[in-house]
Nucleic acid binder design. Structure first.
Length: 456
RNA sequence: GUGGUUGUAGCUCAGUUGGUUAGAGCGCCUGAUUGUGGUUCAGGAGGUCGUCGGUUCGAGACCGAUCUUCCACCCCA
């Protein structure tokens, strides 16, 4: 009884050429992370439900993949809860584990558990898949990779600066030319709420104004009304929609606007520091833009918030990040401010693909293939293959003395650069015949000369 | 989670108001070519028409459910 195989919704296989391109992205990111002193860690795909639930807001909880208890444990199912339609309680009775939703919360758990083994400020990076029970769309999957770098144990703005530099360095290295790092500060958003007299509605306000780009001013106003913000407050917020000019000009306006809010001014001050420092240091290709309407959904951010968008392709944000002052306190460790960023590798992949920015060399396979003419020739080729590999040349020996046509086709399909033809004649004369698969040229030489040719 | 959309050969897609044996291009295999791929020519294999059920004398086509794809919301990388 065989049935057609299929993948779970929103998941993908990665073919060799895709993998090569993905690794190119990961390696570029890793190299830069290393340059800034971040060390790699990994955490399990699954966490206890209690570690994840409640950390991403109500919406987030809904998108967490639950793992069903195994075997007899399902008998613990709380059927009363099911009858009462208390689905949350029922779920908890049959599931105690869940797939991680992002890398930041598991990292906070990790820091708390290993605090005695870590040196603070602790700089770590992590490249692993995360899972979300979202409805898939283009550039949006149920399993995707995040490439995070975080620092915990310091509230120094040095790290905000470093993280901006990392965004710039990685994306520039990947060949992107026109992208913007958008930056804002949650303290400014708190200040705005304060100035409007709606401190307790800060989440509602930020969620609404975050959409300015998408739904325009009228849309935001409508959303604010729907979310129960007073008309007075909306009038107060109004000037922010048209905030324009350079970063310096925007900051100046905001300073006046937030004059009565201590926290707001603190945010402005922090932002100003980061912008000034980056101004001095310079960036390769990125533009750093202060955007007061940038809010980001995750509600654990407390200071700087980042988002990176490319102007070359129509696509949502490709990176995000921000500062969180209190994430580890959820697990009992206070006073551990952290700041981190995340590259959305899958979206970056799509961008590079669309802009044709992957270097050709990325997908190259073995450089050399030996044609197989028979058992004794094969033995000879295996020796030469060992020598090639020892000198750092990737190669393979065709596994059987199949028809030449078949062997050549295989080499062609795999993008092999050189095919070596070594039959009885070549062995007798102590030479190799080699064919350049790009030009089609073929010649004979000693093995040493051939080695020099391809290494040169 | 809400509304819509898609599914036919390995891939990209045709397939008339429901009517014999479901097609094309590309790819794949074999041969022309027993030591030559990428070009050419000849031949060949490959389909439970996403799945299950229904309507009908008859369903790839119509209806329902379900899965999947993509899109707009929600939210987000």
């Amino acid at each position: 009884m065989s049935s057609k195989p299929a993948l779970a919704k929103g998941t993908r296989d990665y073919l060799p050429t895709t993998m090569a391109k993905r690794n190119y992205i990961y390696n570029t990111i890793k190299a830069v992370y290393h340059k800034y002193g971040f060390a790699q860690i990994e955490t399990p795909a699954m966490e206890l439900s209690q570690t994840l639930l409640g950390k991403y807001g109500e919406e987030g909880d809904r998108l967490i993949f639950r793992i069903l208890n195994s075997g007899e444990k399902v008998s613990k199912a709380d059927l009363t809860a099911l009858e009462e339609k208390n689905y949350a309680r029922f779920s908890n009775s049959v599931s105690e584990k869940a797939l991680r939703y992002d890398l930041t919360v598991p990292f906070a758990r990790f820091v708390v558990q290993h605090q005695n083994d870590l040196t603070f400020p602790f700089k770590r990076y992590q490249i692993q898949p995360v899972w979300r029970a979202d409805r898939p769309q283009k550039g949006r999957y149920r399993e995707f990779y995040q490439c995070d770098a975080d620092v915990v144990g310091s509230d120094s703005l040095v790290y905000e600066i470093e993280l901006v530099q990392i965004f710039d360095e990685v994306l520039s290295a990947l060949g992107m030319k026109d992208f913007a790092i958008k930056i804002n500060n949650r303290k400014i958003l708190s200040g705005i709420a304060e100035v409007c007299g709606e401190q307790d509605k800060i989440v509602e306000i930020t969620v609404a104004i975050d959409k300015l780009d998408k739904i325009g001013k009228e849309g935001v106003v409508k959303e604010l009304v729907d979310r129960g913000i007073s008309q007075d407050a909306i009038d107060k917020i109004d000037p922010l929609f048209t905030l324009d000019g350079t970063n310096v000009e925007k900051l100046k306006t905001l300073k006046d606007y937030l004059a009565d809010s201590e926290i707001g001014l603190k945010g402005v001050e922090e932002l100003e520091f980061v912008l000034n420092q980056i101004e001095e240091l310079g960036l390769e290709k990125a533009k750093l833009e202060f955007e007061v309407t940038l809010a980001r959904g995750l509600n654990y951010y407390t200071g700087a918030i980042f988002e990176v968008v490319t102007n070359e392709v129509k696509m949502g944000s490709i990176c995000g990040g921000g500062r969180y002052d209190d994430l580890t306190s959820l697990f009992g460790l206070k006073g551990m401010s952290g700041v981190g960023i995340s590259f959305g590798a899958d979206r970056i992949f799509d961008v590079l693909e669309e802009l044709d920015l992957f270097p050709e060399s990325v997908t190259a396979s073995a450089e050399v293939m030996f044609i197989n003419f028979g058992d004794s020739e094969q033995a000879h080729c295996l020796k030469l293959a060992k020598q090639l590999r020892d000198s750092g040349v990737s190669c393979e020996v065709y596994p059987s003395s199949a028809k030449m046509q078949k062997q050549m086709k295989y080499a062609n399909a795999k993008g092999i650069s050189y095919v070596l033809l070594i039959g009885s004649k070549e062995i007798e004369e102590g030479i190799v015949t080699y064919k350049n698969m790009v030009t089609g040229d073929q010649s004979s030489a000693s093995f040493e000369d051939f080695l020099n040719t391809i290494k040169g």
